[in-house]
Design a protein around this nucleic acid. Structure first.
Lengths: 192, 192
DNA sequence: TATTATAATAGACAGATGTCTATTTGGCAA
DNA sequence: TTGCCAAATAGACATCTGTCTATTATAATA
């Protein structure tokens, strides 16, 4: 036999290596600033040869980018299944935002680190861009204003969301995901 | 004689060294991503011995932070003199925002680079924090809401401002500083 | 002018990086 | 089992880093 699971265990090996490197980087990011993390120490912690690291990633920034891309793909999937299950409009939007914020609490896909001040702002913007786009915010936006101003308002809300979540994470996530979802929804609507 | 200008030319020498290193770093940041910039190439461009660099700064991140701090100090001064000269309220606020955005056009204090996506988000937040605090936004904020929500809205507006300016810079600053100041003012007010 | 203090330079060093080539390991097929 | 192939490992290499120590150059003083 060949075909479907021809390289299955081979792929598993590759996936395992990437996984321990990803996990290891996130763990190190919890402990120290990203720019102080070395490839060497990451490989030692992950029990991976340094040469192996370089066969998978160009450098440590490439590893972080790959983690970010995976997380965004996961987010899109999560939103898709969620949006199929719920009524439309305000309730669905708040519920899907709430779901994302619940994942922060559960620390899925390293979200707590990626969205904190240790994470890259480019990822964080993309995260909210996806969240808004897959909800009804573009619709809410369609009523008013010239295109340039519309774009400005959308950017404003994307960046504003980042600020709120970062503060929520930094202060220990004392408020419920639901509360954050609602306040974010309210503020965003007031901008449009 | 001694006293007042005892070390004047000595300080000038130090200031000159720091200036060429700062200028050089900003120039390099225009050309390539920050993480690819090496101390060695910066020193070669600036005609400064690499040892000299390390007597002034711990590493290249420390140099960037020092540039950011200087720029924030400059911003505070700029705002202070400006706010003394103008009527209060909406007009003064828009005028002072406009003045800041004019400086982006003139590329004063490296603002174009520091506020672009090449710059650090921590600096960018501080920049808007200063701008808002020195105007009447805290007052506008004082009317509504519990403290936590007030803080959230302020953070939202700080981060939103960053998004607008970054987009404006990235798209070639086609709109006038005045136009950006006005749209930013409008959006910010709608959040409070 | 000669002295002194300090900024700038020069060079050495161990450690990390990124790029190699060569070798070993382990899953899959004949 | 045997052989094949891709992943993982091992080690060499030039380069950059950050930390030294020693030396040179240049201000301010005596």
């Amino acid at each position: 036999m060949e075909g479907q699971n021809q390289n299955l265990n081979l792929n598993r090996k590759i996936q395992y290596t990437r996984m321990v490197l990803s996990d290891g980087l996130i763990e190190l990011m919890k402990a120290k600033p990203f720019e102080k993390i070395t490839v060497k120490e990451l490989c030692e912690r992950a029990n991976v040869n340094r040469s192996t690291f370089y066969t998978h990633y160009e450098d440590i920034y490439a590893l972080l980018r790959s983690i970010e891309e995976e997380t965004l793909a996961w987010e899109r999937g999560e939103m898709e299944t969620l949006l199929g299950k719920w009524e439309e409009g305000k309730r669905a939007t708040i519920r899907s935002l709430e779901r994302l914020f619940e994942c922060f609490v559960e620390n899925r896909k390293y979200l707590q680190v990626l969205m904190s001040e240790k994470g890259s702002i480019s990822f964080q913007k993309k995260f909210f861009f996806v969240a808004y786009q897959m909800n009804d915010f573009p619709a809410a936006q369609s009523r008013a204003a010239p295109p340039f101003e519309k774009e400005m308002r959308f950017l404003f809300v994307v960046n504003g969301g980042v600020g709120i979540v970062q503060h929520w994470l930094k202060t220990g996530m004392k408020e419920s995901p639901r509360a954050i979802a609602e306040i974010l929804y309210d503020i965003a609507l007031s901008v449009f």
